[in-house]
């Protein structure tokens, strides 16, 4: 896991978020907050240290944390995967 700030991209899928607040309250960098609908959103992406706590502890599989460079690679490799299948 990346330990430096700003090397990760956190995504919340609002459709699956139930607004329980685990990620918002336990994130060591206070990256996440509640929006006006009571769902989590990424308020301070740059503070994320990539510990992955929110991802592991989201009971609804509604958060993903990926490394920035991985994200780029992933976009490329997705097409390759399709070819394989």
């Amino acid at each position: 896991m990346a330990k430096k700030k700003g090397e990760t991209i956190v995504t919340v899928y609002p459709a699956w978020c139930k607004g329980c607040g685990i990620c918002v309250n336990f994130c060591p960098g206070k990256v996440l907050e509640f929006d006006e609908h009571g769902k989590a959103y990424v308020a301070r992406m740059e503070e994320c240290i990539g510990c992955g706590f929110c991802e592991l502890h989201c009971p609804d599989f509604a958060i993903s944390v990926v490394a920035k460079d991985k994200k780029d690679n992933k976009n490329n490799s997705e097409h390759k995967d399709e070819g394989k299948n």
């Binding site: 139930k18 607004g19 329980c20 607040g21 989201c58 009971p59 609804d60 599989f61």
Partner: peptide, 17 residues
């Protein structure tokens, strides 16, 4: 259908993961 049936914050989803 997702999200699943569990209440907000229920640990059961974490266990499934």
């Amino acid at each position: 259908k997702f999200p699943h049936v569990y209440c907000p914050g229920c640990g059961h989803g974490i266990v499934l993961g």
